[in-house]
Nucleic acid binder design. Structure first.
Lengths: 178, 178
DNA sequence: GTTGACTTGTTATCATGTAACATGAAATGG
DNA sequence: CCATTTCATGTTACATGATAACAAGTCAAC
């Protein structure tokens, strides 16, 4: 079954889902990917008591349109073009809200934001950032984090939050570059 | 043997060195710590063909004065006060040079820079950042990095550079806070 | 239907980072 | 020793990222 996938240029073949074992770099049904994330987001907010308002929903949708990280001002431009406020706090507030509720991530390395692709379970993933195409994948990082916490504990340091971000080449770009 | 340690407020007891197994949080002879880093830096530059100019040396010294990360503009103020240029590129160029040559690190999470305390061997350490006192320690992260690279390899992603930064409480601040 | 909490919008400002160009010092090579 | 080239330093100007403080609108709850 083949369908067109206007928002995700890497998609050529439709697979059945976009689950934890399918990284963002692999071809997948990005529409389903988006829909699922939005769906899980709604569920998560219901639990936590957060309100999914128009700006916030639209912000999440904008992030979800690609597997990329976007700068706050890039998001702001999109929001402004659609009739929302034109000032930085509009974007930052929506983005911060999404991050706080686990629906988006902040990429320290890029000073940018990306939609979380599997909200619904509390996680602090590692990120793989392709330096050629800017695409982004989340990786379960629990083992890496505990390894680090153990090392740190030897020095008496109590780890609270860990940032793990890898820069490199995704399969497609590695092939293209070689 | 007790001596005064004007630049490192945590130091009360002088130990013989500041080696790989002594994290920045532990009391140590910070003067020796500085001297050794400067020394190793010179050696490393000789190998690589980089030139240690006045601005660069001074920038490194400024970073070395504390086990903290400093913002580029904070460094710039210090440089400007000492007769160097007053414009941002002065600081950024010196800092970028130091980072490129492995003499300093950039802390993504803080948008700040810190001197590398053990240059001379190529390393991409993990960082422990105390959220209370802002002090900073480097941790050998080879095992953590390889764990991540292996995970990433399963997706076909080729990791090139990894950022690992942990935010938390150092022993002293944990005790003080509790 | 008014209170109170929250959301959205604004203005203004600050912090961080870079592009582009001019000048000056140091190594290279005749 | 001087000319050439390369690299370093300095500048102006600007781009990007982020937040404080305040005004006005929305919405649920009582």
């Amino acid at each position: 079954m083949i369908t067109s996938q206007p928002t995700c240029d890497k998609v050529t073949l439709v697979t059945d889902d976009c689950d934890r074992t399918t990284p963002a770099f692999a071809p997948h049904d990005h529409r389903a990917c988006e829909a699922r994330a939005l769906d899980e987001a709604a569920g998560r907010l219901a639990e936590q008591g957060g309100r999914m308002t128009p700006v916030r929903r639209r912000t999440l949708e904008i992030l979800l349109e690609s597997h990329r990280a976007m700068g706050a001002y890039e998001v702001l431009d999109r929001l402004a073009a659609e009739g929302f406020g034109h000032q930085p706090p509009v974007a930052y507030r929506a983005l911060d809200f999404l991050v706080e509720h686990g629906l988006a991530h902040r990429l320290q390395r890029l000073n940018a934001f990306a939609a979380c692709l599997h909200p619904g379970h509390d996680h602090a993933p590692a990120f793989l950032i392709c330096r050629a195409c800017d695409k982004l994948a989340e990786l379960p990082a629990a083992p890496v984090r505990t390894a680090l916490s153990n090392l740190a504990a030897e020095t008496g340091f109590a780890v609270e939050r860990v940032t793990i971000e890898a820069l490199g080449l995704c399969p497609a770009c590695a092939e293209a570059g070689a």
